[in-house]
Nucleic acid binder design. Structure first.
Lengths: 352, 352
DNA sequence: ATGAAAGCGCTAACAG
DNA sequence: CTGTTAGCGCTTTCAT
């Protein structure tokens, strides 16, 4: 292999279209025509240009192109938490489908914080992204305004808002599905548990589904736990309590519905640590069906989302919107959820 | 909330610096100066410009700026597999540290395929990224050339190559560490197992460390398993065999060292399915210490990488290189690995 | 079939 | 302190 030089020393700037033009002895328009594969260039010229491009290692400057074209092929993707396996999987799918449609994805991790969500969108807008895909949306209205004001198509993928296109599972239905499963198994005291960092619009919809299921079964009251693992305290229906208390004592909760798999698995981990047996003492249902949930050792019952289908539809929607193939008012596309039953759920203990 | 219009119909293009200038009754340079916070603008003018910006919702066009400045603040990040929790965590850290230093991250998922690795780098180069961070590198030399030819600083983060800056753990040492742990526990037949999609330079170094440890303990021969879960077949030292065979029979392997936690956990899952007890029948060591490995139910003994420290150093390195604060030949920064002992390892069965 | 010229929105000298 | 001017690299009419 050729001796390599110190990266800091090589200062040769990338060749421009002009370099190619002069090298090939043509005008830059011709080079442009060749690069873009337009017809109306003689074969001889085309060949000469191709050679020059090869020799110089010319690569068109996308920034310049997009500046003059007044549009970019960058898709901004707002992710709640890349470290959450669900988002990681979605991000991966989104990137793949975006690339397949000619878009480059630019990710923004928000840590579920509406502050950085706003900052992220701001950055994306500065890059004049062609559209924004929200993989999580806090619901913060200022972000919405910023985005609206600047005419960027937006799709809420696996999350929702009352403006912009939505492609997601029916979270309310998913919430009902998971909760009903527990009710059917005989549980009467069922808690809903979420991790505050990830409480967004989806979380709210799932909570609603949970409440509806309880109501329909005439079970009162709903119990909302907001917990930051691995703390042993949590906000239980608004008041700070020891988490363990919720699952012990005479009218303890015998089951919990996690707003997502990470919350559910964290709770299972907590249960393991404090020697609560799952599902004998405590049944747990999650949401998402992340790969980890399917491991024999985890065996989490969960509401599954068809991730790749969601990503595909979401990208199709926003791409169509960008390309003006889709017009009219915001559209909502709901795809089905399904319950995956594993070992984390069972009937409640005797007498409860 | 104001009635929202159909996203497809609002055609107002984003305001430019000229719009702001005329609105404020100044020249565009003055606006530019205000936007960039340069001194030498009277307070009155500054205020007027600020107001105009506010009213118009002006947002500078980064593409135009970067075009004229001849440099971007985009950092390309090549990721092996976003769905692998290790990469997901790294990606997240990288994005955070990049943002802290004023860079925007643009991710490329390669699925461990050197073909799309090349395509990804190609795309990044078209965007004139300021630098490229490899979170996985296949070792494919053409990519290297493409990159070198275009003068982009490169850092190999938690992976390696013999050119460009490297910031990683000492994979060879890590390989030795994990293997030695098994040897010390009494194992004599230890397999090395990796998932082909992720075999890269790090994998090779870890394999080398594994071999060295075996050699030092005068254990022969090394066993290399290349496995695509959940298949029940695998390539064992080059030949296709049933995976189970490796861990049963008279001279079976009693331990396995996974090239990363995903491989190790997959193997554990396999063991669970075929009723091999871990660690009684089979000890398993992983590499990375992903969050999942620490769950009580997984309890994977593994070689831990300090992810956030790696990301921080990696970004610092490439940022310094970009900003010319770091000059000279490629630098290698190695950070320490440590073994985290959990429940997946123990002594071999009696008599083996 | 090819070239010339006019910008895209912005920064960076340089004048005034 | 503020305005004028000349591009950055590219696409896109419009001539030739």
């Amino acid at each position: 292999m050729a001796a390599h030089q110190d990266p800091a020393q090589r200062v040769r700037r990338p060749p421009t279209i002009l370099d190619v033009a002069s090298q090939a002895g043509v005008s830059k328009s011709t080079v442009s025509n060749v690069v873009r594969g337009l017809p109306g260039v003689s074969d001889a010229t085309r060949r000469r240009v191709r050679t020059a491009i090869e020799q110089l290692g010319y690569r068109p400057n996308v920034l310049a192109r997009q500046l003059v074209q007044q549009r970019t092929s960058i898709l901004g993707v707002v992710v709640g938490d890349l470290a959450n396996p669900f988002f990681a999987e979605m991000a991966k799918s989104v990137e793949r489908h975006a690339a397949a449609r000619g878009y480059t994805a630019m990710f923004c991790n928000t840590e579920g914080d509406s502050q950085s969500e706003l900052a992220g969108v701001e950055t994306l807008l500065e890059y004049r992204v062609a559209g924004i895909v929200f993989l999580a949306f806090s619901g913060e209205s200022r972000t919405m305004q910023e985005t609206l004001e600047h005419q960027v198509p937006v799709v809420f993928l696996s999350c929702k808002a009352d403006w912009g296109d939505v492609v997601s599972v029916d979270d309310v239905r998913g919430g009902r599905l998971g909760t009903s499963h527990l009710i059917t198994a005989g549980h009467r005291r069922i808690a809903y548990i979420s991790i505050p960092e990830l409480e967004d619009q989806s979380d709210i919809a799932r909570w609603q589904g949970y409440c509806e299921a309880l109501e329909q079964a005439r079970i009162e009251p709903p119990i909302r736990i907001s917990w930051s693992p691995p703390s042993d305290h949590a906000l239980v229906s608004g008041v700070d309590r020891k988490l363990l208390e919720v699952f012990t004592g005479p009218d303890r909760a015998t089951a919990a519905f996690g707003s997502n798999d990470v919350a559910a698995i964290s709770l299972q981990e907590f249960a393991d640590r404090v020697k609560l047996r799952v599902p004998q003492d405590l049944s747990i249902v999650g949401f998402d069906d992340v790969p980890m949930a399917g491991l024999a050792r985890i065996g989490l019952t969960t509401v599954a989302q068809p991730r790749d289908e969601l990503a595909k539809l979401g990208i199709a929607t926003i791409a169509d919107r960008i390309e003006r193939k889709l017009k009219g008012p915001p559209r909502t596309t709901l795809v089905g959820v399904s319950l995956v039953t594993r070992q984390s759920t069972g009937p409640p203990p005797e007498g409860l």
